[in-house]
Amino acid sequence: MTMISSQNQQVRTSFLRSIGRAFVDIRELTLLVLILGIVVVMSSINPYFLSLANFRAVAVGMAPIAVIVIGMAILLASGGFDLSVGSVMALSSTIVAMLLVAGGSIPLAVLAGLILGAAVGFVNGMLVTRLGINPLIATLGTMSIARGAALVLTEGFSVSSLPAEYAWLGRASFGGIPAIVILMLAMVIVFDLAMRHTRFFRQVYFIGANEKAAMLSGVRVDRVRITAYVLTGILAALAGVLLSSRLMSGTPTAGNGIELQVLAAAVIGGASLRGGEGTILGAFLGVVFVALVNNSMTMQAVSIYWQMVVTGSVLVSAVALDMLIRNGRT
């Protein structure tokens, strides 16, 4: 019915494109506005909020979650997800710590931790693709196995007395910016661009939007999905390394419940359990937003229990708002 002559088609297209871009970025924009809003409001309430020390603490505190959310956002875009990230984080932090205590070199110990994360991710990927097990069940299982393994290895105790040099990664800083924060930002930028522009990661969206059509378009669906799980495993293990380096101990109970915080942040940032959408930048902003909300409440001495209530409400509101916008659009 829309009769468009070929002359004004060009004009119309670029116009549509800018509208389209705005819609794509609206979640990121909304989050940025909300984040700025928190900063403005909190700065006027609590003078300590707008201090470098506070921002540094928030950034360092959220770094492990931000690293993991990269993998989770990729998985969500592919139509999958991973509950085992918190356990993998704990397992890698204890394994690395134990290897270091046993006299292993730092690079070797870290490498071993990352390979372990990759292995758990590979198992997750194989369970989900080759055996067709629902990701919820498959990663619920590996979540329990990895956590159990960490507890068995350490008999439930933290592993400390790590070599002093190991603290470098977690505690070094350049011009006042902690190395851990620089690493986090660099990874977010690299993976955001990769998800937007590289052939390999674009395939993730095809799979999430319509797995069968992706397969029938020649996308190697299983290979891409397994890679996404392996990547998530590595990133969770890296988060464990960062955490153990900062705390100078391997903790088998670390990251308990972190998988739900990561999922919540990714969904607030525009990802969806239906797959096919979401960006790394959005997921990262989701992490920042949740971290700032929690930080604000801590500053105002709101109890940790109430913070959980608020985080949950934010998640539900974000998704509800998204559904309203979606329904209004069609």
Binding site: G20, F206, A209, G276
Partner: peptide, 10 residues
């Protein structure tokens, strides 16, 4: 619709 196209994509 189910095998050929990604209906939500441009």
């Amino acid at each position: 619709k189910t095998e050929g196209l990604f209906l939500d994509y441009p």
